[in-house]
Design a protein around this nucleic acid. Structure first.
Lengths: 227, 227
DNA sequence: GCACTATTCAAGCAATCGCTTGATCACTTG
DNA sequence: CAAGTGATCAAGCGATTGCTTGAATAGTGC
């Protein structure tokens, strides 16, 4: 009797721990973070996290066994995506808790930003009104697929790789605000550096689409995520 | 340049994973679940999870390094508690996600409950009104310390171990509702069985104090958690 | 059918993890 | 101060994990 109730506890907590295990490896958390931006193929993900394809595939299967992501075969490719909107919300809570509690994270990013002397990012609260009013030029510097999967209203899709070629098309009389995936994403940082080097007044928004959505602000999808 | 940004990502995601690692072992999750009920000493916890004291201590230190719990020396004892209210909220989200996504958990508990033929628990929504109106006798069958750390308003503290001795003091003309720590806690189940065997109309509430609080319903503390 | 690509599978190795045991430290009480 | 208790530390073990390498599978395009 006490033994069977112990058994139940063990299996229940063991299953809970399976969810924890899924989040217990750096590369896996990074994969999840990428997938929170939108669906992706395996070797796309592998490239982004800088791991071998085989290894990435294995990590993805761990995530799949924990029901955090799911895969769909599309011709040659296997497209992975988050298994449910709840996962995105939970992952946000996970990241937020870690950032709040583990000061090392804040330290590391602060040190990194200081080192790159990228002026402190403007926080969203102050910018939201101006962005929504269209007083600034808003750039989404993520890859086009992520832009397609959802972006801030009014944002222009200018992948950081293409930015140099498209500088001429940007109005010079307005401030430019660049954003990418979130506070740890450096693409917006690169963009701001490049813009400033060319005389633009440029700022970095340190939130991504997921943070934006978490605030209850609107997201636009130019294309359906899975039509 | 790309290398340093990789470095930042690695350290950030590695730190995030530290939080995941804390949640990646069954006993550790169980410890967290217990601590969500209220502060505890090490060997109290060790007994509850059925592990050696040394092992429990080590698990607690992993949780502490992840800043999920903190310890305070009190004379001979080390009292552990959750490090912040956010941790409790997050742990609730963690458990809820796991329950929703990992059907194995629901299966296991359902099978267990069926095996013990404990009639299905009454869900809170239907009972809340009657409990608040005081139409039923509400029993908190957890240990006294947990009752002291916070309990539902109007509940009587009747630890399951003492229940048999106190049956005579309970009114027989009203329904009895027993609760303990949550859906996986079997103390309320034992209590209901015992009550029914003695002719009471008894029901089990499958929520605990943390669920109750998460609903925004009131909690009473008879004693200050840390005076 | 053949070459090619994207992904998964299987085997292997070093590193880490979970638990145990026995010693040690910190504090209380006789 | 000695005895006793609660907790931590340190060493050691078997099991698991993370990554690599090389082969196998499934679908595409010639």
């Amino acid at each position: 009797m006490t033994t069977t109730s112990r058994d139940l506890k063990n299996t229940v907590y063991e299953h809970l721990a399976r969810l924890g295990k899924a989040l217990s490896s750096g590369p896996r958390v990074e994969l999840l973070d990428l997938l929170a931006q939108g669906p992706r193929t395996v070797d796309d993900l592998a490239q982004q996290v800088g791991q071998s394809v085989a290894n990435t595939s294995q990590h993805l299967q761990v995530l799949r066994r924990a029901r955090l992501v799911e895969a769909e075969k599309r011709g040659l490719h296997a497209v992975y995506r988050l298994a449910h909107p709840d996962v995105q919300a939970f992952f946000g809570a996970f990241r937020r808790l870690a950032e709040d509690r583990l000061l090392e994270i804040q330290d590391a990013t602060r040190r990194f930003l200081a080192e790159r002397d990228a002026l402190e990012p403007v926080d969203a609260d102050r910018l939201v009104a101006r962005i929504r009013a269209g007083e600034v030029t808003l750039l989404d510097v993520r890859p086009p697929e992520e832009f397609a999967a959802g972006h801030l209203p009014g944002a222009l899709s200018v992948p950081v790789a293409d930015l140099a070629d498209r500088l001429a098309t940007l109005p010079r009389d307005r401030e430019v605000v660049a954003y990418c995936r979130g506070p740890y994403c450096v693409m917006a940082l690169d963009a701001v550096q490049l813009l400033r080097a060319h005389g633009f007044r440029a700022l970095r928004l340190d939130e991504g689409v997921t943070d934006w959505r978490a605030r209850g602000l609107p997201i636009t999808t130019a294309l359906q995520p899975h039509p």
